[in-house]
Amino acid sequence: MKNVTEFKVSVPQPVLDDLKNRLQNTRWPGEAEGSGWHFGTSQAYLKDLVGYWLDQYDWQKQEAQLNKYPQYIADVNGVKVHFQYIKGKTEDAKPLILTHGWPDSYYRFHKIIALLTEGDQSFDLIIPSIPGFGFSEKIAMPSEAVADLWTVLMTENLGYEKFYAAGGDVGMSVVKALASKYPEVVAGVHFTDVGYPMGQEDPGTMTENETQFAQFVQQWWYSEGAYAMVHATKPQSIAYGLNDSPVGLAAWILSFGNAGAPYEIIEEAFGGKDELLTNIMIYWTTQTIATSARMYKADAMMQWSGAPPLQKTNVPAGVALFPREAQFPREWAERFVNVVSFKKMEAGGHFAALEVPHVFAEELQSFFYSIS
């Protein structure tokens, strides 16, 4: 490995003491009677979660779990990139980089590490934190620039001639850019979503299924898309409150972390209270909620700049559509990537690696080993 140093998560006790003090002194805003989750994050639910956070959640235990697998910091074109690196047990293990999204983190993939590194169809897993998220450098970059970094990380820092890539949410944009810009080194890509209609498509070129999908997405943006509009236009305005209040941070993440699922299964989507809070803690202890939100602005500014759109390439792409994800048709995916496998899954949602890890791991193995 080149320009790489070992890393362990170690949060100073004063940071944890300060967190406890802020949680204990929360000024609760109240909520409209009977509003539940319809106005945003339920105060009743959040109070219960904060009580658990204060009295039962064990950060030291979770920190030890975060340090279970080898982690590193790489200097990639002058940017500090945090990543987990776990070698597969077989000699022909395939190098696979997994890219998370928002409001999750590299922790999205912790349940599938053993599943993908210890079997007969194993991978060398590289699981980085996007710059501006978690333990990587606190700098916001557009998705295409992140793809540039990932290519250098894989080929120069780690020395792979070719590699595979998978991602969802923000990670989807990064992986699409990898396939488009670097087809000579990217051997295959996998997605759980492929982007959404934004009103720029020519209606005359859209199938009936695509039109129905576009109508659904338009309604979804009106009802659930506030976070993306705020991140893409005024990320600094919300950064002050979210970086100052752990309850405010938790409320913001919870409000949009359901990703279309019924609100009562938020914990299931993240894997339980401990895993939900560990994801929030990664943002809180690194103070990266501002830069993570700012990535949306970076992507929007690149789009508004008139930069040419990414071109579709021949890199083989697998797509797994989970039932609690927006139900896009195959032809929509084929607009952007070379779809050689399109599967509708029976369970899971936006955070499939957390919700149904065995199903997700088997899908990655099945696809990437089928195109070798």
Score class of each variant (00 low, 15 high):
244 D>G: 07
215 Q>K: 11
232 A>W: 10
181 K>A: 04
246 P>Q: 03
206 M>P: 04
190 H>Q: 07
177 A>W: 07
179 A>T: 09
193 D>A: 07
186 V>C: 06
134 G>N: 10
148 D>L: 11
223 S>A: 14
224 E>L: 03
156 E>W: 13
173 S>L: 14
120 D>K: 15
215 Q>C: 04
166 A>F: 06
231 H>K: 09
145 A>Q: 15
121 Q>F: 10
117 T>D: 09
188 G>V: 04
223 S>L: 14
212 Q>F: 03
167 G>Y: 04
114 A>T: 15
237 S>A: 15
116 L>C: 09
114 A>S: 15
109 F>M: 03
131 P>D: 08
243 N>W: 02
214 A>N: 03
162 K>I: 08
239 A>F: 14
148 D>K: 14
188 G>W: 08
109 F>L: 00
208 E>A: 13
143 S>N: 09
221 W>E: 12
217 V>N: 01
169 D>A: 05
175 V>N: 02
238 I>C: 06
131 P>I: 10
219 Q>E: 07
197 P>Q: 01
163 F>R: 06
209 N>D: 13
224 E>I: 04
242 L>Q: 00
234 K>Y: 12
246 P>I: 07
238 I>S: 11
135 F>I: 02
143 S>R: 02
220 W>M: 10
188 G>E: 08
155 T>F: 12
179 A>Y: 06
156 E>C: 13
140 A>K: 05
150 W>F: 15
241 G>F: 07
219 Q>T: 10
203 P>S: 07
211 T>S: 06
235 P>I: 05
